[in-house]
Design a protein around this nucleic acid. Structure first.
Lengths: 243, 243, 243, 243
DNA sequence: GATGAATGAGGATTCATTCAT
DNA sequence: TATGAATGAATCCTCATTCAT
């Protein structure tokens, strides 16, 4: 039910706004508020889209709220009717991207995939994740940025943790003998490898991009294959893991 | 002779400052100028150290020159006696880090290493690079930052290109049969893998850090081993590279 | 006795300096203080010369004390050993110029001149005044400047008043029938005419300058001639002065 | 239609502001934009008036933008909504004053005046020019100032040249036998005489001012009369011009 | 709800002035 | 005395945020 989500977000977006409490839009009436919210939701989407563009183009600090408002075709005042401050825009944008990322991620990590051979599994898992990132370049900006205020980072860290946990669980499901800390590290490393490769992928276009995608998959394949195969012969791993 | 370098840098740091030219104080005399230069150089080092800290904590835009001066324990005016503007601080800091990085990198990529088995070679190459990055966290900030003024980025790009070229040459020396574009991609991918793993490494301390370092080496090993060994059996690579 | 003047000036220059009283340089000893003062006087002259140049080039506000010190070949600290602040430099420079102007002016307005025919008298009077201004362009800067702090202006106003009074006295000596206010106005107008013409003169060089000097004298001549001649036939003057 | 001019100026004032282009708000609609423009124009006028006051009181360099904003009763940010920088304020103020000066000047130098006797012509020409300057003391500041940024000076120089040319043409029309360089010098000298006298006029009030105005006219009359009359008997001119 | 002018604290930078050497 | 590095208040300007319309 996307509308619920939307309303939730609207509330989130306004949380902490102004100094007064929200009038709470008479919960008795049914028609009007809904329409208002709908309109508001459109505005919010419009603003967040603009914010994504401007964040990509100028980074978080470089993006001025006025520039975002202008990009969205509204006045700065309007922007502040939906977001209490600049940070909230980044947070909400981050959350929405993370929500969509969660969905993408959830769809990619379905159980049916684990039955595929690793190479195919990587295709099945990574392709949608790569596609998502290519379509949402702001995700990387909000996710990497060293300059982004703590809250966003923390929000992202939470999602990151969730994703890590899930990846870790998957790993441990299929490799029960893997020690806990090793699973954590492997999951985490897989993530950063993926992100790093992604940057390279996103920096190129067309056929080159395809080549980098294959290269990224090669990296992941070679990293994970020894774990998945019966013969864990990864040499350094062997030397360091079996003291 | 690192001292010469340092003084040269001091000059660099001041170049462009104010609108007048420096009288250049008769370089024939030894005592006085040296002491002055020494003091100046100490200030510059102190300011750059402070800048590194503040850049790490707040990013380039988030770092105010006043904050840098405060961190260095001097007044804002003093900062501007050594750097004409904020950008120059980042540039000088970047150049110094890149110089040291170049040295580290040069020392790490010595020919004698290629005779080692891959695992040992990775130790020999990666350990100093990792150590450098752990000791100079600002390097990553200045090197990654999307918000950093063009000059630094261009400087860094040049270094990056140099490093890539060298890595590529190494790859092609020992794997002459590797196609040119494949070598480029491999070198590039190795770099981003390394950087990505580095972030993970640097995010941890002590024993954990060691574990992540091992994990990073595992990644690199598994990525590069199939290329180096006689039996290039990396499955996805095989399937995509040999049509 | 220029040395007395100099010492007086040196004192003036320091007057108001720092927060303490001057040590008053043991008046018992004779040799040393004199030498010190002499050295100091040289420094002061050097600094004032530099200040004149910089004021001419950049105006009062545009002239930085550091620039003046640099132009004088000394350090900013040295400058402040002789002048308590920037304004004092302008004041002292102004006073010295005014002193010399007073001399020039005094020499130009000698009684013997009044026996000359007006045209010759104008040559005798204006030529040295013009020469002085051409040789001391800073005089105009300090004398005109709308941006110059009140004190200097007030100092200058005092001199201006003195000069006016003298001019007025001259006028009234030889034109006793001239009403007091008319004499004042005439003196004042003569001054501003002179200054205005001077600007024009100083804006040109060589032969052109000579032509403008003649033009200026023409202005003055035509302005003053009707007063001096027996037949005050200047039409507007006639209509306004003889109701 | 002065209102058009004003709106044009408002655009000029905003041109170059910020880094983005103005959307230019469909000029077809009449109501809304007009009101907005009107408000903006009022602000600009208010700011320029404040700027005129502060420039008069402190000169260009001495006038801080915060002081101008305070004088105008607005915040510094508001000032920068209408002018991209301090210089632009001076430029716009200068342009507006020059525009009005041009009008005043154009109205004063009408052909019909040349038929008047010189004395009456001087009244007809000088009175409006004097009135303008008394009402717009900032004109003199912006016009004289040695410290004012190049653009304004250049603008003013252009106007000055135009005015000189016109004056010169007038002179040569009615005194065709006057040599070209003489006409130039006479025009130029007339100007500086006028300005100089103006300063004196503006330094006084009421009846005194009237007296100084008469004195200024006397100066001009006596300077120009010999040229205009059949009998060019100005003695020094005669002696220097007719060798 | 929407607008956009207004706000004002904050940031980069300058420069008159001081003080340890 | 001379030096020149250091100071820090003041300046120009920006931009996140508010509010009257």
């Amino acid at each position: 039910m996307p509308e619920d989500r939307a309303e939730e977000s609207a509330v989130t977006a306004r949380s902490g706004s102004r100094t007064e409490e929200a009038p709470d839009a008479g919960s008795g009436t049914a028609g009007r508020p809904r329409r208002r919210q709908a309109r508001g939701e459109a505005r919010i989407a419009q603003l967040l889209e603009a914010a994504a563009d401007v964040f990509c183009a100028s980074g978080y600090n470089g993006a001025s709220t006025n520039a975002i408002a202008r990009e969205a075709g509204v006045s700065p005042g309007t922007l502040y009717q939906f977001f209490p401050n600049k940070e909230a825009i980044a947070i909400e944008l981050g959350e929405r991207l993370m929500d969509r990322w969660r969905e993408t991620y959830g769809a990619a990590f379905v159980v049916s995939h684990v039955e595929l051979p690793l190479e195919r599994m990587l295709d099945a898992v990574l392709d949608p994740l790569i596609a998502f990132n290519c379509e949402n370049p702001a995700f990387a900006v909000l996710t990497h940025g060293s300059e982004i205020p703590g809250v966003i980072t923390r929000e992202h860290d939470a999602l990151h943790a969730t994703m890590l946990t899930r990846t870790e669980q998957l790993l441990r499901t299929f490799l029960p003998e893997l020690p806990a800390d090793r699973a954590t590290r492997t999951a985490e490393m897989s993530f950063v490898l993926f992100k790093a490769g992604l940057d390279l992928v996103m920096a190129h276009e067309g056929a080159e991009r395809e080549a980098y995608i294959r290269e990224l998959k090669t990296v992941m394949y070679r990293y994970l294959e020894p774990l998945v195969c019966d013969t864990p012969d990864g040499a350094p791993a062997g030397s360091t893991d079996t003291p």
